[in-house]
Design a protein around this nucleic acid. Sequence first.
DNA 1: CGTCGACCTCC
DNA 2: GAGGTCGAC
Length: 414
Amino acid sequence: MAKHAVFSSGTRLWKSVDCVKSQLRLELTLACGQSFRWRETSEGHWTGVIGGRVWTLTQTDDTLWYHVYKNKVEQTKGCDRKRRAGTSSLEENKSEKKFKGRVKEEEDEQVAVTPVKEEEQMLRDYFQLNVNLEELHTHWGKADPHLKQIADIFTGVRMLRQDPTECLFSFICTSNNHISRIQGMVERLCQALGSPLCQVDQTTYYDFPSLTALADSSVEARLRDLGFGYRARFLQQSAKQILETHGPQWLKGLRSVPYPQARHALRTLPGVGTKVADCVCLMSLDKAEAVPVDTHVWQIAKRDYKFASGSTQKTITDKLHRDIGEFFRNLWGPYAGWAQSVLFCADLKKFQKMKETLCLVQPKKEEEDEEEEVRTTCKKTKMKTEGKETVKHGKTKSACCKKATKCVKNERVL
DNA sequence: CGTCGACCTCC
DNA sequence: GAGGTCGAC
């Protein structure tokens, strides 16, 4: 049985791509709520599924290392293998059900292998390594000092180019929900409806379910049993609607239509509102200008950018979505969605200590000057008590950011 | 066009 | 209430 590849056991299992950490940091990019399927299987090692294959990734200062596990596959139909390796396996695949039933019985298992060049290309495509993140940071920094402060700490946060089906159906699960539960739900979704790919140590990895699997009439009840709640119906109905009124290639085809059209098209699906549509556009349909606006981003816009601060608006309306999106696009440019993800990442509870750690080296001072400017009305109490003494109680996140950035500057001066 | 309640669970 | 959406005013 295969084991999770570990870098310390030698480079024999690993192939590499040149990539500095300012361009990509796995622990941020893979755990900031873009994809919900990556797990840190050992320190600094991330295991997940790309293109119907299981990968473990890790990195050193200037190199991204990867290992691709061999899939167990149905031994007949040689063309099937190529298909699985080359195209996304999330598309229609009639053989999936058969495979699922046979995988246990198959004695002489065959393996699917992919040429190294294709693997490297898959990885470059998934991380969009052709996009120069450092250049974007430079551009954003000139336009927006606040973003610059955050981005100087949170380097290497990239947008993934995910499979549209996985992205759409994962994000339908995100409504009224938080990351840890979403991760569990997506995992159960793949387990229940996806094809097994391979087993590594104690874990069986599954592909994301096909549209056909998701559209089956039994799916709603099944997913409700698995704790999906009202989202179960959205998932099944959206899959059904896509297949019946558009066809299996429709989602991927939205990559080549303009952002407003793609956004509008997605919103015709049940369970897909403005926020989810923007997420899918940004994270899987090549719409780098899409800015997903949730309550959280709205807080950021008001608090850090004084957006509509005088407004009496209670709820996030469609118009507000558009306005905020436009505001940030005007500020950050055509990769506004990428910029937003940096701010979003920096606000996640689990990454607070990146800023706190930097605060540690800073002797306490400069408490008062910006204190009053910062709005303390942030709904969520982000600064948990875990922040310990390094973070003043009652001090807002924003203040902490500023403080942290100052620390960085001081460090560099030293 | 903006507001409100309901929708499923889990912590 | 949580990284929302839908349907009804």
